[in-house]
Design a protein around this nucleic acid. Sequence first.
DNA 1: AGGTGTTATCCATGAAACAC
DNA 2: GTGTTTCATGGATAACACCT
Length: 228
Amino acid sequence: MAVQAGRTRVVPTLAPADDEVVARVLEGDVALFEVLMRRHNPRLYRAIRSVLRDEAEVEDAMQQAYLQAYAHLGDFQGQAAFSTWLVRIGVNEALMRLRGRGRLVLAAEPPEGGRVGEEEHVADPSPEDQAATHEARALLEQAVDRLPLHLRTVYVLREIEQLSTAEVAAALELGEEAVKVRLHRARLALRELIAARVGQSAPKAFGFLAPRCDRVVAAVLAAIPARR
DNA sequence: AGGTGTTATCCATGAAACAC
DNA sequence: GTGTTTCATGGATAACACCT
């Protein structure tokens, strides 16, 4: 993934594959872990955000997930994609936080303000399109927030994050059939709320922005030396 | 009874093989 | 090279079974 230019350090386009980066980190090139974090920040954010709806807690969970991933990097077998492995850690971390606070049965209300993400500047062709896109995204995000946890997680990973059925199944430790059914039921539920505009706005929902990216990366990098 | 997962079936799509 | 047929794969959906 390319990174928002300007405010975020740019990871080279022809960056090494995840497996290679992991190997080099394990060989002692700890700084390269930043490459992995910046590469997978948006996906991890969306995965955790699908479970936790408090933005501050999402960042905490992301940092904890990265630290766990770093600590157990040697356990990564390379059988699944690194991103799948990371998402599984993140989702488990998020679910653990929910269980730890007795909040596994979620309330239906959206988070404060009902708006996800932060101010974002996407160059749309026209003000009309921009307004329509913004409205559709807000509608979608609010609707997704109202889905039950198990449906929301599958929907975010599959539809928004564009993971394959197999990857979602692996990340959530489910059967592929269960993923398909949950996705189908999530769509049915969403259809009642938002109808036609969902499809066009899904890929842009829950944008992971540069300031948050920098914040998470900095916190994790600061914590890693302290653990050695 | 309602929620959830499993199974079976159908459909769409893409790749490979083949004939022309 | 092009068009077609066949096959494999993945996704969507309905029906059913199981569990609480």
